[in-house]
């Protein structure tokens, strides 16, 4: 299908975009890469009165490192994340994740800000920013505020953004030398929506986790920072402890049933990913053994 009629405004600056949002409120939609918005409009799932196109705002594009913080502009495209040496060095989790996001032609247009603001619970980047403990920088008519990634996602396609606010950047602590990462997802076919996925960041010292952040996606109405990770921090991880953590994780999840998987299947796959993740990060393959149980 084709999108219903709408008006179009090409924002000339962030200030101009905010003026347009203030004037049109929730009747307006921000257009960045359009790789989620356009399908939704073509399928007539949404019909905004006006699109505010921020695609030309160069000030919102780019990756910089400043005082131990990695700053990624909202308009940074997936392909830029894939090719950036700064991302490879300071947030390799994002690089790994992007290879699973759709296909090259989509990654050439889709933006990180668009993906986060769209807040699809099955998408990769929201779970990554949760695992990376990122801050989401948003600007509105009353100024700028920073929202912790775990507070940003509120539900399916719902975020803490007000209708008059614009997501402008994502800030993340640069990965220290001690940080390690894990990313894996189950999908029917590479590039398809994930059935279940896991983005994780850990700090391992002397064979133990001193920090472990597990961002699961496609397991509920938003990316989930698993509390079950707490059981594995500062502990000697045994097969029994990992089983306990897996049980706690399954209890913690509230997955939906859809045409891809039942809730029970998603719970099971999440525990498989947990075991793989822990085994990989601790470099102890024997911990993965419980996978097929």
């Amino acid at each position: 299908m084709k999108a219903a009629a709408f008006a179009y405004a090409r924002a000339t600056s962030v200030v101009n975009a905010l003026e347009l949002l203030a004037a049109h409120g929730d009747k307006a939609k921000i257009l960045s890469g359009g790789q989620s918005l356009m399908p939704a409009m073509n399928l007539r799932l949404i019909s905004p009165d006006i699109l505010v196109d921020i695609g030309g705002l160069a000030e919102l594009r780019g990756i910089t490192v400043s005082a131990g913080v990695l700053i990624v502009g909202a308009l940074t495209r997936h392909v830029d994340l894939l090719k950036s040496p700064e991302i490879a060095l300071h947030a390799p989790l994002l690089r790994n994740a992007v290879t699973h996001v759709a296909h090259p032609a989509i990654r050439n247009r889709g933006t990180i800000g668009g993906s986060l603001a769209h807040a699809d619970p099955a998408s990769e980047l929201p779970a990554c920013v949760v695992a990376l403990d990122a801050m989401i920088v948003v600007r509105g008519s009353s100024g700028e505020r920073r929202i912790g990634a775990t507070e940003f996602f509120k539900g399916i396609y719902e975020t803490a953004l007000s209708p008059d606010e614009l997501l402008v950047a994502i800030e993340m602590p640069v990965a220290g030398k001690s940080s390690t990462f894990f990313f894996q997802e189950y999908a029917r076919r590479h590039g398809d929506y994930a059935v279940v996925g896991l983005a994780a960041r850990a700090v391992v010292a002397a064979g133990r986790f001193t920090d472990l952040r597990l961002g699961f996606f496609a397991v509920g109405d938003r990316p989930l920072l698993a509390a079950a990770a707490g059981r594995l921090i500062n502990a000697s991880v045994t097969s029994a402890l990992l089983s306990e953590a897996a049980t706690a994780l399954a209890d913690e999840l509230d997955p939906q049933e859809d045409q891809q998987a039942t809730a029970a299947m998603r719970r099971h796959l999440a525990t498989v990913l947990l075991r793989r993740c822990v085994a990989a990060l601790l470099a102890r393959p024997e911990l993965e053994a419980g996978v097929t149980k």
Binding site: Y8, R10, L31, G34, Q35, M38, P39, N42, L51, D53, G55, V79, P104, A105, I106, N108, R109
Partner: peptide, 12 residues
């Protein structure tokens, strides 16, 4: 660079 022309408006 390759893109989907159905997901891009002519005005873009």
């Amino acid at each position: 660079e390759i893109v989907r022309s159905c997901l891009m408006l002519a005005v873009q």
